[in-house]
C-alpha cells in the first residue's frame, strides 16, 4: 500500500458516497445516468468475485463490500425509490456498444484464460468506459449540477492516482499489470476534458454548462 493507492481508494469512496448523498438528500436522481451506475455495479460484481476465493486483507475485503453495497444501493435509488425523477430520455447511450466489445476483448486479451480471470479483465475494461453514458448525458443536456461535477472529479481522480500508484509499484516493487495500466490510462484520458471544465469553471464558482 502506498499513498497514491490509498488516496485513490479514498477518492473513489468519496465519489460513491457523494453520489449516494446527493440522491438521498435531494430525493432526486436528476442528471445522473442510471446506465453508468448499472455498469459500475456490474464492474464491482465481476471484479470482486474473488471475495469468495481469496483473502488479501481486512482493508481490501471491507472496501470491496462497501463498493459493491453502495453501487447496488445507488442503482436501487435511481431505478426504484426515486424512479420518478430519473431522466431516462436523456440517458440514451447505447450500453451494448460498450459491453459487447469489452466482453470480446476480455476473452481475447487476458492474463489467464479462466472464468474468474476473464471476469476480472472484463471488469477492468468495462470500468474504463463505464462513465461514458454519464458524460454523454451531460453533453446532451449541456449542464451538470455542481454536486454531480464533484462526484465526477473524485471518480476521475481515483484512476489518475492509481496511475501514480502503478509508477510507484513498478519502481519499488517491480510490479506491473499491463491490462490495468492500459485500461487505467484510457479511463483517465476520458476525464481530461471534464477536468479542464472542472478547474476552469466549477472551482471558480460557476455552474458547469456547455456552450450550445
Amino acid at each position: 500500500m502506498n499513498i497514491f493507492r490509498l488516496t485513490g481508494d479514498l477518492s473513489h469512496l468519496a465519489a460513491i458516497i457523494i453520489l449516494l448523498l446527493k440522491i438521498w438528500k435531494s430525493r432526486s436522481c436528476a442528471g445522473i445516468s442510471g446506465k453508468s451506475q448499472i455498469l459500475f455495479a456490474i464492474v464491482f460484481t465481476a471484479r470482486y468475485l474473488d471475495l469468495l476465493t481469496s483473502f488479501i486483507s481486512v482493508y481490501n475485503t471491507s472496501m470491496k463490500v462497501i463498493y459493491i453495497g453502495c453501487a447496488y444501493a445507488t442503482v436501487y435509488l435511481i431505478y426504484a425509490k426515486f424512479r420518478a425523477t430519473y431522466d431516462g430520455n436523456h440517458d440514451s447511450f447505447r450500453v451494448e456498444f460498450l459491453v459487447v466489445p469489452v466482453g470480446g476483448l476480455a476473452v481475447l486479451i487476458n492474463h489467464t484464460f479462466s472464468p474468474l480471470e476473464i471476469l476480472w479483465t472484463f471488469s477492468i475494461y468495462l470500468e474504463s468506459v463505464a462513465i461514458l453514458p454519464q458524460l454523454f448525458m451531460i453533453s446532451k443536456t449541456g449542464e451538470a449540477e455542481t454536486i454531480t461535477t464533484h462526484y465526477l472529479f473524485c471518480l476521475g481522480m481515483y484512476r489518475t492516482l492509481y496511475l501514480f500508484n502503478w509508477v510507484w509499484r513498478f519502481y519499488f516493487e517491480g510490479f506491473f499489470d499491463m491490462i490495468a495500466i492500459v485500461a487505467g490510462l484510457v479511463q483517465t484520458v476520458l476525464y481530461c476534458d471534464f477536468f479542464y471544465l472542472y478547474v476552469t469553471k466549477v472551482l471558480k464558482g460557476k455552474k458547469l454548462s456547455l456552450p450550445a
Partner: peptide
Amino acid sequence: QDLEEQHDEL
C-alpha cells in the same frame, strides 16, 4: 508470477 494471479488492488 503465479498462473492464478491474485489481484490485490481495488
